[in-house]
């Protein structure tokens, strides 16, 4: 499989990354090199192999439904890190759907 410039641009949009035309050019080239290498996976028949999404035999890890009230000192520290806040809200530029 080869990836086209247009696909690279589409993927960039999905990832909310902006690239200059030169960067897109470079990425497309590097991408295709990496994909060539990754396409090695097609050499083997994986049809009947179960995928491993989790390496551990763990399952159904649960916590009790107990509430701890919010920590005001922590919230203060969180809001201090925020670029813009107002009245305890995070402030963001207008959302355009």
């Amino acid at each position: 499989m080869k990836i086209s410039r247009k696909e690279v641009e589409h993927v960039a949009a999905l990832a909310r990354l902006a690239f200059s035309p030169e960067e897109v050019e470079l990425f497309t080239r590097q991408f295709n090199d990496i994909l060539d290498y990754i396409n090695k996976l097609n050499e083997i028949d994986l049809e009947d192999v179960e995928p491993t999404s989790h390496v551990q035999p763990l399952h159904t890890v649960l916590r009790e439904d107990e509430a701890v009230p919010g920590d005001s000192a922590l919230l203060e520290a969180v809001l201090r890190e925020a670029p813009e806040t107002e009245n305890g809200f995070f402030k963001v530029p207008p959302v355009i759907d």
């Binding site: 009230p69 919010g70 919230l75 809200f89």
Partner: peptide, 19 residues
Amino acid sequence: ACPNRFGAEPNTNTCPVCL
């Protein structure tokens, strides 16, 4: 473990996980 409660002051029912 943040409380599941409607109507609190903004962002007061939060912690590193749900943030």
